[in-house]
Nucleic acid binder design. Structure first.
Length: 702
RNA sequence: GGUGAGGUAGCUCAGACGGUUAGAGCGAGGGAUUCAUAACCCCUAGGUCGGGAGUUCGAUUCUCCCCCUCACCA
């Protein structure tokens, strides 16, 4: 095997925003980055993991104000939480700085100076929402009001979450500042713009070929097609950030100085350690620079960021690796929905290392979202790590300790099997290198199965009954332990603690990748202590309980589905407050819904409703928008997939039955706040249920 | 709406530059075993590889259309 040439790598994760403690969505990225970094180091490369806390911007300024502390106090507190949680997740970063630092100011000013000198900055007066009471310009997200297109209330100033319309805060009806609660006015201000268009040829060249993931490349094609717009990099005071030199009352937009944190954190690290900063960022650098990011910030990292670097005379990144988002039990992580699990909460209940393994077993090179299914998590860790991997050491250790005085044999029982395991090393390494961690884990687990099978076939426990065969027992178990040793090395980037435990057990120094190729013979090993213990499902339960009052189910997939069978299946599959179990169970076939208790049934709040209005929905050929009156429960809007079966006029004034406590479902056309009951296969054959005469809106159906 | 990624065994997913009986892990069922943390080993999945059409000697793998899911839209 030829030793790969020593590479010099600089790796970053996206900078976590300093307005709150990390959650599992953050950890997905940091674990992915860390596994890759640890792998590179084990391969003998020089690999730095550098990042920082993203500390500027309006949200931090306002949050600090709300808590009655200074922004500096806030970011210091959050920064400490971040460091603590990252450390306990075994994120092996070399430096974690903050963007609110002298180094970052220094680098940001220098970059800005060069951009100005290069003619890449222009001025333009724009009109923006302004809060007269708070005396500040308002970011779009800080203005809320009624969507001008669909009429949904309480929408952000840039787009409507209900109908998807995009607009400016000035278009909102009844606009209100989130800061003061007063109506904002429109006010002019001069802003500085970074001329992104100057860099189009450079960006097209840089993003071309297969430098980036295919999904990202495709997206970039779309953006190029739409044309690159200049980028507003200034904000007016009050703002928490860096003042722009030569201007009064103007600050750099947080997104300009945030990625510069990649440089400034490295700068701080280099000054502390005596390393050469320029080596990484000079235009002709031999070093490789990689940014791991979430797919939501691809635009910043593949367009703005390389362009800013180029404009300031630095080299662009070698590549940018985007990943998808994390869902938990099929639900988006959301604070408001109570589905957010903090890193701290996880650490309080479960080992970080098990989550690292689960993430690795599910992560590929794509930008698809990843679901943390906790039932699967428990099964996977217990089976793969405890039942199979650690079991190899556990089942061999006793024989070595008892029958061989704790000493390994001096030759291998099956050298070709060892060779097979060693040869797999390059295959596994290639998968790690390409960030196909799931592929690497599959490969490792296949080897693990192979090792257990070997021991099973040799049956050392039978040999051990015959004292004359003691040497054979020792040889077989030495073989088993050597196979385990190889596996522990291959898994080390993912499970560093487990690997450290294995090293201690085997009496070895910290292992590098290449060490796996050389068998361990004739040495003494230490007494075996359990290297991993099973996950107790109760710990998962406690985790979820602590995370929130409940993991509430989100809306049903399609409010348009109105057949009776679908209603029954959904009611059975979604007992409120029990989404965890529901999500893990396979859906019952519609033809034979599971039995449910009367209590379950009573969870479905069925109500008589009067259809006050019905209209076709522009752009949806199956939906009708119904306005229904639920009596004491008030009036609701419901979208029903019955357009092919009913003319709107036929429905107005009719009574029907509605599921009143169905979680509201956001549809492209508006919010659907319930479900109308109907029977039939669909299309024109849909029959809306109706109560007999005498029923009134709001009556409970039971 | 635009764009992208997908729809393969109960679940999570591999895979096939088109070609004899479509795979793995988990789960489930059966068996074996007892060294090991009720672990491990063996056997069992009869799935129209989303639907339809086309190209072809032959498609689940290519093309087109449709349906559905998910994500992104500075």
């Amino acid at each position: 095997m030829t030793a790969p040439a020593k590479r010099s790598l600089l790796v970053t994760s996206a900078l976590p925003y300093a307005n709150g403690a990390p959650h599992l969505g953050h950890m997905l990225e940091y674990v992915l980055t860390d596994i890759w970094v640890r792998f590179q180091r084990m391969r003998g490369h020089d690999c730095l993991f550098i990042w920082a806390s993203d500390a500027h911007g309006t949200p931090i300024m306002l949050k600090a104000r709300q808590e009655g502390i200074t922004p500096e106090q806030l970011i210091e507190r959050v920064g400490a939480e971040q460091r603590r949680d990252f450390g306990e997740f075994d994120i092996s970063y070399d430096n974690f700085h903050t963007t609110h630092s002298d180094e970052n100011r220094e680098v940001t000013y220098e970059i800005y100076r060069r951009l100005v000198a290069g003619g890449h900055i222009r001025r333009e007066t724009i009109v923006q929402a302004y809060d007269q009471q708070a005396r500040m310009f308002l970011p779009d997200r800080y203005v809320r009001g009624t969507c001008p297109r669909c009429g949904a209330i309480d929408q952000y100033g840039d787009s409507c979450e209900v109908c998807g319309a995009t607009y400016t805060p000035a278009d909102l009806l009844n606009a209100v500042s989130v800061v003061s609660g007063t109506a904002p006015v429109q006010k002019e201000s001069e802003h500085l713009f970074f001329k992104l268009g100057d860099f189009e040829p450079m960006l097209r060249a840089w993003t071309g070929g297969d430098r980036l993931q295919s999904a990202v490349t495709a997206k970039l094609g779309e953006w190029f097609g739409a044309g690159l717009r200049d980028w507003d990099i200034s904000r007016d005071e009050p703002y928490f950030g860096f003042e722009i030199p030569g201007e009064t009352g103007k600050f750099f937009y947080v997104w300009l100085d945030a990625p510069i944190g990649y440089l400034s954190s490295l700068l701080q690290y280099c000054r502390r350690t005596g390393r050469d900063f320029e080596q990484y960022w000079k235009p002709d650098s031999d070093a490789e620079v990689y940014h791991f990011i979430g797919k939501d910030i691809v635009y910043f990292h593949t367009l703005f960021w390389p362009a800013v670097l180029a404009g300031a005379g630095y080299r662009p990144p070698t590549s940018v690796f985007a990943h998808g988002f994390l869902t938990v039990n099929g639900l988006k992580m959301s604070k408001s929905r109570g589905t957010l699990i903090s890193a701290r909460n996880w650490l309080d209940h479960l080992p970080a290392e098990y989550l690292r393994y689960y993430f690795a077993s599910r992560l590929g090179d794509g930008v698809d979202d990843l679901d943390l299914n906790l039932d699967e998590f428990v099964a996977k860790v217990n089976s793969d790590i405890v039942g199979k991997l650690v079991n190899i050491a556990s089942r061999c250790a006793g024989f070595i300790a008892r029958g061989a005085a704790g000493k390994l044999a001096s030759t291998l029982a099956d050298a070709s099997l060892q060779q097979e395991f060693a040869a797999a090393g390059e295959r596994v390494a290639a998968l790690y290198e390409g960030r196909d961690l799931a592929g690497a884990m599959r490969e490792i687990m296949a080897l693990t199965d192979r090792a257990n099978l070997y021991i099973d076939q040799q049956k050392p426990w039978l040999m051990a009954k015959d004292p004359a065969r003691a040497a054979e027992v020792q040889a077989v178990c030495t073989q088993g332990i050597n196979l385990f040793r190889v596996l522990a090395v291959y898994l080390k980037p993912v499970m560093p603690k487990l690997a450290a435990g294995a090293e201690k057990f085997l009496g070895l120094p910290p292992q590098a990748w290449a060490d796996a190729a050389m068998p361990l013979l004739g040495t003494a090993i230490n007494a075996y202590e359990p290297l991993a213990t099973r996950v107790d499902p109760a710990a998962v339960k406690a985790l979820l309980a602590a995370s929130s009052e409940s993991l509430k189910p989100s809306g049903v997939p399609q409010a348009a589905a109105t057949t009776g069978a679908a209603v029954a299946a959904k009611a059975a599959a979604k007992p409120a407050q029990d989404a965890v179990k529901a999500a893990a169970k396979p859906a019952e076939p519609a033809a034979a819904p599971a039995q449910l208790s009367i209590d379950d049934f009573m969870k479905v709040d069925l109500r008589v409703a009067r259809i006050d209005s019905a209209e076709r929905v522009e752009g949806a050929d199956k939906l009708l928008r119904l306005g229904v009156d639920l009596g004491e429960l008030g009036k609701r809007q419901i979208f029903a997939g019955i357009r092919e079966a009913y003319e709107p006029a036929q429905l107005v004034g009719r009574l029907t039955v509605v599921v009143a406590n169905l979680a509201p479902r956001k549809m492209r056309f508006g919010l659907s706040e319930g479900m109308v009951l109907a029977a039939g296969p669909g299309g024109q054959e849909i029959f809306v249920l109706a109560p007999d005469a005498g029923a009134t809106p709001g009556m409970k159906v039971k």
